[in-house]
Design a binder for these strands. Structure first.
Length: 194
DNA sequence: CGGGTTTGACCAGCGC
DNA sequence: GCGCTGGTCAAACCCG
């Protein structure tokens, strides 16, 4: 796994990652999580397999058999509770922030949730516009940002802020797929299920 | 007509 | 205080 850093993000690269939703696109994935906003380092990060219902399905399922290249991509989850973050910061924070970079021809991946676009902005050091989305489910305040990588427009950077308080509208659909499909093979696929 | 998108304006935080 | 930047709002517009 390649690791590189920018002033704002730590990148965890695994080019062997294949996005199951985008079989027709040349997909590999490079995951990262934002670094500590206060200190500008990533000491507060905890490496863990995502297992909570609010998290992305463990990406190790991507590479186990379907990828065939071996190295598993591990998600890094930002831990905020034991790092001395002020209470106000935590209340202000919606909880989880998860980001990943994906090589994709399309800008917005279908993660099963319904998003409403509420803003679009050009940002510094990026000629491409950044798009802002909110979860359109009532009472759900999860947001995501989608932008093309300024250094390599072939990559799309998606950042999720917050935790869904509901199931994916496509949850039942995917469950049906699991039941009717080869379960072991389906497990190689990943759903962005927060 | 309802829901989603576009886009300029506005606001807050931060550094100088 | 001022300017820059990122994030959000909301009115206008579009589309099925």
């Amino acid at each position: 796994m390649n690791i590189s850093q920018s002033p704002n993000f730590t990148y965890f690269s695994d080019e062997s990652f294949i996005n199951p939703f985008m079989d027709n696109n040349d997909f590999s994935n490079l995951m990262f999580f934002d670094v500590d906003e206060e200190g500008g380092n990533n000491n507060g990060f905890v490496e863990e397999e995502i297992s909570s219902p609010t998290s992305i399905v463990s990406s190790e399922t991507f590479t186990g058999e379907s990828g065939g290249s071996g190295s598993a991509t591990t998600l890094f989850k930002k831990e905020s509770t034991n790092r001395g973050i002020k209470e106000s910061d935590q209340t202000k924070d919606t909880g989880h922030r998860v980001a990943f970079r994906t090589r994709s021809k399309i800008d917005v991946m279908d993660d099963g949730f319904k998003w409403r676009k509420y803003g679009k902005k050009s940002v510094k050091n990026n000629i491409n516009k950044r798009n802002y989305y909110k979860c359109s489910s009532e009472g759900c305040s999860v947001k995501k940002r989608v932008e093309r990588d300024g250094e390599d427009a072939a990559y799309v950077i998606t950042t999720y802020d917050g935790v869904h308080n509901h199931e994916s509208p496509s949850h039942v659909y995917y469950n049906d797929m699991v039941l009717s499909y080869d379960h072991d093979n389906w497990n190689q696929h990943s759903l962005l299920h927060c």
